[in-house]
Amino acid sequence: MTLTTLDAPMSPLPYRIRQVTWENRDTFSFALAPAGEGSCERFLPGQFNMLYVYGVGEVPVSISGDPAEGDMIVHTTRYVGNVTKAMSRLRADQMIGVRGPLGNHWPAGEAKGKDLLIVAGGIGLAPLRPLIYEALRRRSDYGKIVLLFGTRSPDDMLFRNELRQWRSRFDMDVQICVDRAHQDWFGHVGVVSSLIPRAGFDPYLTHAFICGPEIMMVNTVEALIKRGVSEEAIFVTMERNMKCGIGLCGHCQLGTAFICKDGPVFRYDEMAPWLTIREM
């Protein structure tokens, strides 16, 4: 019998790294498979796993792969500190501990019949990629699908192949905006929220899903509200340091919510009061 996170929620299960892909100079993707028998746990777009680098530590990382892919689970991580740097040194065939999937998910079902607006900033595209895979699989459930992606420079782009494929589709609008570039760049330059006034979605019949640095999300929400999108139709993900990942330790508390258990996806109007409090 395969042990799952549900049986022992604080015990990481051993997974083997099947493939390492460097997305850009500081961000890499791992394709993982259970070390023993059995298949990967099913997940919903927006959920995360606690990844344990043996002997170093454990960090929350969103699942960035295709939910329909049963035999591998993909995570895309940017190295910023102790654990993620140690993780970046792992190679194919090495082991990593996985606890999850944890947290809630993007409420894509609520968006049925509406336009789907996805706004990602930097590594924020990782937790949104499973949502895009799902939405394209159920393409007829939605009106327009628009992806606005903001990143630092063309060299910092993630998921180049997918972005190229999505851009070439006739049923999806993809716009990329960078903070700075050189003349070989033909996309937009500026803040990603500057694309909202002219993006092709119906503000009154749209569900917006946003993930990125908090300042970018606040800015984006402001532009969406200005355009007429209601606060109840805007969803954001929140990031806070985590320990247990299952609502026990209180490490990730933000206001009355535990990000790990009640989030990481929140409806904007439910999270808005806490976003403006500095100490939070």
Binding site: R180, A181, H182, Q183, W185, G187, H188, V189, G190, P197, R198
Partner: peptide, 22 residues
């Protein structure tokens, strides 16, 4: 679409912002 650029002899033309319709 128009790009606003600054020319730097070391870096060449750096794009600062693009400005679109309207």
């Amino acid at each position: 679409r128009i790009s606003i650029e600054i020319y730097d002899p070391q870096r060449g033309a750096v794009l600062l912002e693009t400005i679109a319709a309207e």
